[in-house]
Design a protein around this nucleic acid. Structure first.
Length: 730
DNA sequence: GACGCTCTCATTTTT
DNA sequence: TGAGAGCGTC
């Protein structure tokens, strides 16, 4: 019974204060590595023990599924009472849960389906076609961005005024048509889940009150990453008078601005709930002194910050290693060699992680790890449930659940190939539009009206029959058998089985894995059958949770974004180059650059004792070799914290590279003539300066003209790191 | 209508 | 580099 108490004694004074704070609104500013998850979990345990409430009265919202699972796991270790009726989940997960329960009040159909961004894109593309919009002039991505943005802001099409602006007016037209299409097909995208559940609460006062009374404690993690609609949703739920907020956030770790997250929410909550109590967690338990100093130095370059200083009682520890690689392959080889060494000293693989800015960078590392036989787990990138063959199968399932799902219909009407081509499909689409019915019913109209050749009518008829019969056949089967049946009857399984290439093998394997995932889902789930809907929802919302193989003791590879909330004793932060990290698109945008810097801060603070940073001088990206400058974030780390492992390096003069990375415009003014390299003007030992890299000394000059190679030692970079530049030496 | 070929084009992060 | 569109051939 006093279990939590003993645990609480292990927390520091401020943490204890946060955990045991009297029920009121609470804002915990928790720096990186200050034990915020610990505090959150302990707070829940404390409330359960002393707060005179049950798990039923608690709502805990996290940002990712990973975090939600971890929270529940840790909580179950801490408390003895069952917590299954406590709501823990992501914003999207909780919103979905509400909508499944109250679909009627929300004005949805009972079997509504969730679509992911790829499905959404396909749908918008289709709408562009019907609106006669040229995809070149009107990129689908723009429309998608516009729609999601407006939804994140809580704006429906009728609330938007284009103000006579053609671009906005057109996007608005797409948004309107898209909304109608989703409605007719009973499809909800990610943003819609949030908006819809907000509107549900907003429009049903009695429902709102019942939830306000139920959730006496609402705990929100990663608050800095909430967007407007999420904020409004929280605000609504917490405004009942009987509920108390516990909010945890760190403005320095806000990295989802590009997705509509508003750091300002952290300020706003103080205005909206003036009695909110603020507690700062500033002691870092995770990283060594040097790593923490480096992180602090980097983030200090951001202007818009709250005052918060992390400190630690830990020893400085080792220096931060910096490796300047020749190219991305050399970089990967270096990293893998280091990993190899550590594994030999008995370090567990899952204590090591490689983090990068973009998924495209993962390939080289995978290849090298594979070569060395080092087990690894890769997060993100190609997710299991985003693979084509899986989506094909799911499309059959979705059509079975909801015949009005046009997106799924289009996906599978002719897959595997049945001889239904564009001409036939256009006719069906035309019919659907004219009668305002779904493609499924339009097809049946077309059949009965005998508008097509008898052969085509027969083909369409047998497709309709296939789906109808399948629905009957699988009605009483367990979920995994249902999927199995769909795979065989649709011909999907044989289609991939007949493909004797490796690709085909992988695909059939994936299909079998899908059946396994379904079997596992049946075992794990607490829902009652029929389970198809629950399974489809889970798949859409947690696309990497099911089906991905267990990440048992392997080296962890992932993007910086997905590393948020994690920690690793040994960490490699790779691809530290201008244009890659900070990303190209942020170079001309100060606020985007600050977000990149926060991302860098998040990255560095993931490391516990050993941190390796690396950059490549030449990088092959999308088939083109580019010459790179080291990331400006590297220069924001005090040189005395760095241990440079690279040999003296040489960068080849290449004009193109200058224009690639320098402000994205041709840098004719900053280009120098390396042709001068052997002129008397340039001598070994001569002092040179560069606007970005400061002063240095020429060590070596090789070759002539455009082929000349210069080695320069820059003061700012310490004794070993030498970055010879090909631009603007004066 | 299916399939294979060439050409073009855009490149971030995730629920 | 690799996905998608467009085009020509079977």
């Amino acid at each position: 019974m006093n279990q939590p108490l003993t645990h609480i004694s292990l927390l520091n004074e401020v943490q204890q204060k946060a955990v045991t704070a009297e029920p009121s609104h609470l804002l915990i500013l928790a720096g990186a590595g200050s034990g915020k998850t610990r505090v959150l979990v302990h707070r829940i345990a404390w409330l359960l023990q002393y707060g005179n409430i049950t798990p039923f009265n608690i709502l805990a919202v996290t940002f990712t599924n990973k975090a939600a699972n971890e929270m529940r796991e840790r909580l179950n270790k801490l408390v003895t009472i069952p917590t299954s009726n406590m709501w823990v989940g992501t914003f999207h997960g909780i919103a979905h849960r509400l909508l499944r329960i109250h679909w009627n009040e929300a004005g949805l159909s009972q079997n509504f389906q969730i679509i992911d961004s790829e499905d959404q894109k396909r749908l918008i593309k289709k709408i562009h076609k019907t609106l006669n919009l040229d995809d070149k002039k009107w990129p689908v991505e723009n429309s998608q961005w516009f729609i999601n943005n407006k939804k994140d802001e809580g704006l429906r099409p009728d609330k938007i005024n284009s103000g006579g602006d053609l671009i906005t007016a057109t996007l608005l037209k797409v948004y309107t048509a898209y909304t109608a299409e989703c409605k007719r097909n009973s499809l909800l995208d990610f943003a819609e889940l949030l908006l819809c559940s907000y509107e549900l609460m907003h429009n049903c006062p009695e429902l709102l009150v019942s939830y306000q009374q139920r959730f006496q404690h609402i705990l929100i993690d990663e608050f800095q990453d909430t967007n407007k609609i999420q904020y409004l949703w929280i605000h609504l739920l917490a405004s009942g008078g009987s509920s108390h907020l516990t909010i945890v956030g760190d403005d320095d770790q806000s990295i989802y601005g590009w997705r509509g997250a508003k750091v300002e929410n952290m300020q706003r909550i103080k205005t909206d709930f003036p009695d909110i109590k603020v507690i700062c967690l500033e002691q870092n338990y995770r990283s060594s002194g040097n790593i923490l100093s480096a992180a602090s130095s980097v983030i200090a370059n951001n202007c818009n910050r709250w005052n918060k200083t992390l400190w630690t009682t830990k020893e400085p520890g080792e220096l931060i290693n910096l490796y300047v690689a020749i190219n991305e392959i050399d970089e990967a080889k270096f990293v893998v060699k280091q990993i190899h060494k550590y594994l030999h000293t008995g370090i567990a693989p899952n204590d090591i992680a490689i983090l990068y800015r973009s998924n495209a960078q993962s390939r080289v590392f995978e290849e090298e790890l594979l070569k060395e036989g080092i087990p690894y787990t890769i997060y993100g990138g190609y997710r299991f449930f985003e693979r084509a063959e899986i989506k094909d199968t799911l499309a059959y399932l979705r059509l079975l659940v909801n015949p009005n799902d046009d997106a799924s219909f289009e996906r599978i009407i002719n897959f595997p190939a049945r001889g239904i081509g564009d001409v036939t499909l256009s006719l069906i689409r035309e019919k659907a539009r004219a009668d305002n019915i779904s493609l499924w019913y339009a097809t049946q109209s077309v059949i009965s009206e005998q508008k097509l050749s008898s052969r085509m009518t027969e083909i369409l008829h047998s497709f309709i029959e296939l789906i109808k019969n399948l629905a009957i056949e699988i009605a009483d089967m367990p979920l995994d058998k249902q999927i199995n049946q769909v795979l065989y009857r649709s011909g999907l399984y044989n289609h991939f089985k007949d493909d004797n290439t490796t690709k085909g093998d992988i695909r059939t394997e994936n299909l079998e894995e899908l059946i396994n995932a379904a079997r596992q889902f049946v075992l794990d789930t607490t829902e009652s059958p029929p389970l198809i809907n629950a399974f489809l929802a889970r798949v859409a919302l947690e696309s990497d949770a099911v089906g991905s193989k267990e990440a048992k003791n392997t080296v962890q590879i992932m993007t910086l974004h997905s590393a948020k909330g994690l920690e690793f004793p040994i960490l490699f932060l790779v691809g530290m180059e201008m244009g890659l990290f900070p990303h190209h698109s942020s170079l001309n945008n100060p606020s985007a650059l600050e977000e990149e810097r926060r991302l860098c801060y998040v990255g560095i603070t993931r490391a516990m004792s050993k941190l390796f940073l690396s950059c490549a001088q030449v990088r092959r990206l999308r088939g083109i070799e580019s010459y790179c400058m080291p990331s400006k974030f590297l220069r924001e780390i005090p040189p005395h914290l760095l241990n440079t492992l690279s040999q003296i390096t040489t960068i080849y003069p290449e004009k193109r590279s200058v224009s690639v990375w320098e402000n994205n415009k041709t840098a004719s003014t900053t280009k120098i003539k390396i042709a001068d390299a052997t002129d008397s003007q340039w001598k070994i030992g001569q002092k040179v300066s560069h606007p970005k890299f400061g002063t240095g000394i020429i060590l070596e000059i090789n070759g002539k003209g455009d082929n000349a190679k210069i080695k320069i030692k820059f003061e700012q970079w310490g004794i070993k790191l030498l970055v010879a530049m090909y631009a603007n030496l004066r």
